[in-house]
Design a protein around this nucleic acid. Sequence first.
RNA 1: CGGAGCAUAGUGUCAACGGCUAGCACGAAUGGUUUGGGACCAUUUAGAUCGGGUUCGAAUCCCGAUGCUCCGACCA
Length: 419
Amino acid sequence: MNDAKDMRQSHLFTKTQKFAPKDEVSKNAQLLIRTGFVHKEMAGVYAFLPLGWRVMNKIMDIIREEMNALGAQEIQMTALQRKELWETTGRWDDAKVDVWFKTALKNGTPLGLGFTHEEAITAMVKPFVTSHRSLPFSAYQFQTKFRNETRAKSGIMRSREFIMKDLYSFSRDVIEHKAFYEKAQAAYERIFQRVGIGAQTYKTFASGGTFSKYSHEYQTVCDAGEDIIYVDEKRRIAINEEVYTDDVIADLGLVKEELVQKKAAEVGNIFSLGTKFSDALGLIFRDDDGENKSVVMGSYGIGPARLMGVVVELLSDERGLIWPQSIAPYQAHLINIGHNDEAEEFYILLRTAGIDVLWDDRKNVRPGEKFADADLIGCPWRVVLSDKTHEYGGVELTHRRTGEQTIVSIHGAITMIHQ
RNA sequence: CGGAGCAUAGUGUCAACGGCUAGCACGAAUGGUUUGGGACCAUUUAGAUCGGGUUCGAAUCCCGAUGCUCCGACCA
């Protein structure tokens, strides 16, 4: 985690608001704006403020860990894309891709702002892929994608400019590709588990395109979602409405009567690309039999901001946000009512113990306001130091989600937060 | 892209009959009293999306633009 040097609330330049903007209907936008996690620049375009950016980074760190565990290598490509590159696959055409933001150099040379990076990475890795010894490998990035959506909606869940983790795999043949694809699925499942939406997230069969029967989406059951899926609870898989036919149900060995229709948000998707892009862009290698073959590719995406939005939609309550410990901006929110010097000691103790702490060190702010803020911001643990707790020589530890409350010593609190 | 709704201080406002100085709350500022659930008092701060039109007079009525939200289409 990139560590903020100062986690005192008095130094935080944002603050919470009592009211949400009136023309925001979606829960995630209302809460995230009210709490100062994000700023809406315009419809479908959001800036991340200190607290929100910490959450984003924690989500991206989890994704990064899982991608690295797959052996994928992190890179950073460019948003600016050449027209010629995209013409090789026909995807420059507005009739074929209607989400392009297009622009041009001063001299008139057309450019596009990338909405995905299959073409770019395929062309980019070409000089490095020479023989079967160059393969397999995979690479990923966290990159800003631009999509000129005709209608942005649902707060940060569907935006026109957003960070996406996109991973691309390069394999010698279909078998090698499949092996990676399986591993990627497991990694994806771990990611959703770790950010706290594993229980509501289903691997969902969706249309596969030219080279494979299905692609796989990860759909989180959520009212703010845009997709309709049919869930088999026992096998924990689902079918996207777009391919929901008797043939597909039979193909997957499911029983129509057992499937339950649900609204869901697509939090990730993975698909096999076959040799579509390697053929179009000439990504070939000399195999051990001396033959030239096209590289078999796969592509795997996750939108961290959409994950964040789904977590808000799923876990928050009437008092505000509730973050799982794994992605909370801070694990603990330290509040003192008086006792400033001791609070500073505790603040240092907590941080020394490796706990991310937001310390509400504001003076002249009444307890009620501090508590209301703590509830709104939604750190998993609230640590209160006051006259009342002082009598016990300890602190009051409250769990945001369950409301469970105990008086413990500061060391006891550290132990409980670590659990 | 088709349809609908909305637009008043930083935020909120089913506040204001076509007519006096655009009200109230939150926020912010100053001073004071407070300190376990957004406390109180005093003083202060800050507003009509833009452009046309109707009218003696427009926040209010009309037209247009823009923006936002929602429904639908789209989402490789």
